[in-house]
Simulated scan of single mutants.
Amino acid sequence: MKKLLGILCFLLLAQGAGGLAHKFTGGWFDKWALVHRIGFLDGYEVYVCVLLIVLGLAVGAASDSVKDGK
Rank of each mutant, 00 (worst) to 15 (best):
G26D: 00
L55S: 03
A62H: 09
V50Q: 06
A14M: 11
Y44H: 13
T25C: 02
D42E: 14
L13E: 08
A61D: 07
L41C: 07
G60Y: 10
A62K: 07
S63Y: 08
L12K: 09
V66W: 15
E45M: 07
G18F: 14
W32I: 03
C49E: 14
V59G: 12
D42L: 09
W28V: 01
L20F: 11
K2T: 13
D64R: 15
L41S: 11
G16Y: 15
A17Q: 02
H22L: 00
F40P: 05
R37V: 06
L34V: 10
L8W: 03
E45F: 09
I7R: 15
I7L: 14
I53V: 09
L57M: 10
L52V: 05
G18H: 12
V59N: 11
R37A: 04
W28A: 00
K23A: 00
M1D: 02
G43F: 04
Q15P: 05
A61F: 13
L41M: 12
T25F: 10
V50K: 02
A62N: 07
W28I: 00
G19T: 11
Y44N: 14
V50C: 05
D68Y: 10
L4S: 10
V46W: 07
L57C: 11
D68E: 13
I38N: 00
F29E: 00
A33I: 02
W28D: 00
D42M: 09
L5I: 06
I38H: 01
A33V: 02
G18C: 04
G6K: 11
V59T: 15
V59L: 09
L5E: 04
V66R: 14
L12D: 01
L57S: 02
